[in-house]
Measured scan of single mutants.
Amino acid sequence: NKFNKEQQWATYEILNLPNLNEEQRKAFIDSLKDDPSQSANLLAEAKKLNDAQA
């Protein structure tokens, strides 16, 4: 299913963002699990935070 693929991709991407700390990473991944339909939005937020902390 589409959300499952998006969720897996977003999880992979978030795990590989270098500037997030473990707590932030875990929070994003927990949110992905809670609502896979928000995968794209959550990934965008994670990338923004990652860039802000660069």
Results as ranks from 00 to 15, higher is better:
Lys33Ser: 14
Lys48Val: 11
Ser39Lys: 02
Asp51Asn: 10
Pro36Gln: 02
Asn4Tyr: 14
Ala27Leu: 11
Lys5Phe: 03
Ala44Leu: 12
Glu6Gln: 04
Pro36Ser: 04
Ala52Thr: 11
Asn41His: 12
Leu20Ile: 14
Leu20Tyr: 00
Asp34Trp: 12
Glu23Ala: 12
Lys2Asp: 15
Asn4Arg: 02
Ser37Asp: 05
Lys47Ser: 05
Gln24Trp: 02
Arg25Ala: 06
Leu43Asp: 00
Glu22Trp: 13
Arg25Asn: 01
Ile29Lys: 02
Gln24His: 03
Leu43Ser: 03
Ser31Asn: 08
Leu43Ala: 13
Gln8Ser: 04
Ala54His: 12
Glu22Ile: 08
Phe28Tyr: 12
Asp51Tyr: 08
Arg25His: 03
Phe28Val: 02
Glu45Arg: 05
Asp35Ala: 13
Ser37Trp: 05
Ala52Gln: 12
Lys48Arg: 10
Leu15His: 06
Lys26Arg: 13
Gln38Met: 13
Ile29Thr: 05
Glu23Thr: 11
Phe28His: 01
Lys5Leu: 02
Trp9Met: 14
Ala44Val: 11
Ala40Met: 14
Asn19Tyr: 13
Gln8Thr: 04
Glu6Gly: 03
Phe3Leu: 15
Tyr12Ser: 13
Asp30Lys: 05
Asn1Leu: 02
Asn4Met: 06
Lys2Ala: 14
Ala46Pro: 00
Leu49Pro: 00
Gln24Gly: 01
Lys26Thr: 12
Asp35Asn: 14
Ile14Ala: 01
Asn21Ala: 12
Gln8His: 03
Leu42Lys: 07
Leu20Gly: 00
Trp9His: 14
Lys48Phe: 05
Leu15Phe: 03
Glu45Phe: 06
Phe28Leu: 06
Glu6Met: 09
Glu23Gln: 09
Asn50Ser: 10
Pro18Glu: 07
Leu32Asn: 01
Ala46Trp: 01
Asn41Gly: 08
Ile14Tyr: 01
Phe3Val: 15
Asn41Arg: 14
Asn50Trp: 01
Glu13Thr: 08
Pro18Trp: 03
Asn16Val: 06
Asp30Ala: 11
Pro36Asp: 03
Leu15Ile: 11
Ala54Gly: 12
Arg25Lys: 14
Leu32Tyr: 02
Gln53Leu: 10
Asn50Asp: 05
Lys48Met: 12
Glu6Tyr: 11
Leu15Asp: 08
Leu49Glu: 03
Asp30Arg: 09
Asn21Met: 11
Glu45Leu: 09
Lys33Leu: 10
Gln53Ser: 09
Ala40Asn: 06
Glu13Tyr: 05
Ser37Glu: 07
Pro36Thr: 03
Asn4Trp: 15
Lys47Asp: 02
Asn4Lys: 03
Ser39Arg: 04
Lys2Arg: 12
Tyr12Leu: 07
Ala27Asp: 14
Trp9Glu: 15
Asn50Ile: 01
Phe28Lys: 01
Leu49Tyr: 05
Leu17Val: 00
Gln7His: 04
Asn4Val: 10
Asn41Lys: 12
Ala10Ile: 06
Gln24Val: 05
Gln24Pro: 00
Glu45Val: 09
Phe28Ser: 01
Tyr12Phe: 12
Tyr12Met: 10
Ala44Thr: 08
Leu43Gly: 01
Lys47Tyr: 10
Glu13Asn: 06
Glu23Tyr: 11
Gln7Pro: 03
Tyr12Ala: 13
Ser31Ala: 12
Glu45Met: 09
Leu20Glu: 00
Ser31Gln: 12
Asn19Ile: 01
Leu49Asn: 03
Phe3Glu: 15
Ser37Leu: 08
Ala44Gln: 07
Asp51Gln: 10
Lys47Ile: 13
Gln53His: 07
Asp51Pro: 01
Leu43Tyr: 11
Ser37Phe: 06
Ile29Met: 10
Ile14Trp: 01
Ser37His: 05
Asp51Arg: 06
Asn16Gly: 09
Gln38Pro: 01
Asn1Ala: 02
Asp34Pro: 02
Ala10Val: 11
Leu49Arg: 04
Leu20Gln: 00
Ala40Val: 13
Lys33Ile: 14
Tyr12Asn: 14
Ala52Ile: 12
Arg25Glu: 01
Gln8Ile: 12
Gln53Glu: 05
Glu13Gly: 05
Ser31Gly: 11
Asp35Lys: 10
Ala46Leu: 01
Leu42Met: 13
Leu42Asp: 01
Leu20Ala: 00
Thr11Met: 15
Asn1Gly: 09
Ser39Tyr: 15
Ala44Ile: 08
Asn41Thr: 10
Lys33Asn: 12
Thr11Arg: 06
Ala10Thr: 06
Pro36Met: 04
Leu42Pro: 01
Lys5Tyr: 04
Leu43Phe: 08
Gln24Met: 05
Gln38Val: 06
Lys33Glu: 12
Trp9Asp: 10
Lys26Trp: 10
Asn1Trp: 00
Ala44Glu: 08
Asp30Thr: 06
Pro18Phe: 06
Asp30His: 07
Lys47Gln: 06
Gln7Tyr: 14
Leu49Asp: 02
Phe3Ile: 15
Glu22Asn: 12
Asp51Lys: 10
Glu45Ser: 14
Asp34His: 09
Gln53Phe: 10
Ala46His: 00
Asn1Pro: 15
Glu13Asp: 04
Asp34Val: 10
Lys33Gln: 14
Phe3Pro: 15
Asn21Gly: 10
Asn41Met: 10
Lys33Met: 14
Ala40Tyr: 10
Ile14Asp: 02
Asn16Gln: 10
Ala52Val: 12
Glu22Gln: 12
Ala10Arg: 02
Ala10Lys: 02
Glu6Ile: 09
Leu49Ala: 06
Asn50Lys: 01
Lys5Val: 05
Arg25Val: 06
Phe3Met: 15
Asp30Gly: 06
Lys2Thr: 03
Asp35Trp: 10
Gln24Leu: 04
Asp35Ile: 06
Glu45Gln: 10
Glu22Phe: 11
Ala54Ser: 11
